[in-house]
C-alpha cells in the first residue's frame, strides 16, 4: 500500500520537508492565528464599548472629575510610540529570519520584547499613579471599565512578550533560521494585532476629548 500512502501524503497538512500544501495555500497555523485574531476583535470590541458606555459615567460621589484630570497624555503618547516602534523591530526580526540571518533575528526579537516590557512598565506606572489619586478598581464604573480594558490589553502584551522570549530562548539548540520563519511570523502577527488594538485604545480612550 505504499503507493496509496504516497497519494495520501500529497494532501497531508504538514510534513518535514514541504510546507502548507493546503487548499488555501496558507498553513494551518497561520490560518488558525488569523481566525483567533479575528475572534479577538469581538473581545476587545466588547471591552471598548463597555468602557465607552461608562466613559462619562462618574457619579461615584468622590472627587474624581473625569478622565481629563488623570490622563497624562505626553506620557501615554510616549508609551504608545514605544509600542508602535516595537512593531517595527518585530518586522525587522521577521525580515532577518527570512534572510536566514539568525543573529539579527534574535536581536530584533529581544528588542521587541524589551520595548514591550517598557510599555508594560509604563502601564504599571500609570496604574500606580491613578491608584495614588484615589482611583481604585472598585471606585466607580469608569475605573472598573478602564482598568479591565487596559488590563486585558496589558495581559495580551505580556503574553506576546512570553511568546517572543519563548521563541528566542526555546530555539537556542535548534537554531532560528529560515525554517523558523513561520513561527516568527505568527508571533509577529499576534504582536502587531496587540499594537493595533492599542492604536484604537489610544485614540478612542485617551485622545478623543470629552465635552
Amino acid at each position: 500500500m505504499a503507493s496509496a500512502t504516497a497519494v495520501v501524503d500529497e494532501h497531508a497538512g504538514h510534513d518535514d520537508h514541504g510546507h502548507a500544501e493546503t487548499n488555501t495555500g496558507i498553513s494551518n497555523n497561520k490560518l488558525a492565528m488569523w481566525l483567533f485574531l479575528s475572534s479577538d476583535c469581538l473581545l476587545f470590541g466588547a471591552l471598548i464599548s463597555s468602557f465607552l458606555l461608562y466613559r462619562t459615567n462618574i457619579s461615584d460621589g468622590t472627587e474624581f472629575e473625569g478622565p481629563g484630570e488623570v490622563f497624562d497624555i505626553p506620557f501615554t503618547s510616549l508609551s504608545s510610540f514605544i509600542l508602535l516602534m516595537s512593531s517595527l523591530t518585530m518586522v525587522l526580526a521577521l525580515s532577518a529570519v527570512n534572510r536566514d540571518d539568525e543573529r539579527s533575528g534574535r536581536i530584533w526579537m529581544l528588542c521587541t520584547a524589551f520595548l514591550g516590557m517598557l510599555f508594560i512598565g509604563g502601564q504599571v506606572f500609570e496604574f500606580t499613579e491613578f491608584a495614588g489619586k484615589g482611583l481604585g478598581y472598585t471606585t466607580n464604573t469608569w475605573t472598573s471599565a478602564f482598568y479591565t480594558l487596559t488590563g486585558f490589553h496589558g495581559v495580551h502584551v505580556s503574553v506576546g512578550i512570553l511568546m517572543l522570549l519563548g521563541t528566542v530562548f526555546g530555539t537556542r539548540n535548534s537554531g532560528m533560521g529560515k525554517e523558523k520563519s513561520e513561527t516568527v511570523e505568527l508571533v509577529g502577527l499576534y504582536w502587531h494585532f496587540v499594537d493595533i488594538v492599542w492604536v484604537i485604545i489610544f485614540t478612542v480612550i485617551y485622545l478623543i476629548p470629552i465635552g
Binding site: 488555501t24 496558507i26 490560518l31 488569523w34 476583535c41 469581538l42 476587545f44 509577529g188 502577527l189 502587531h192
Partner: peptide, 26 residues
Amino acid sequence: VGGYFMHLKFDDNILTKLFLAGLVLA
C-alpha cells in the same frame, strides 16, 4: 500596520476577508 506589518497586503486575500469579518462584525 495591518497591511504592511501584518502583510495582509501581500498575503492571500482570504486572510484579509477573515480578519475583516471579525472586525466589521465587531
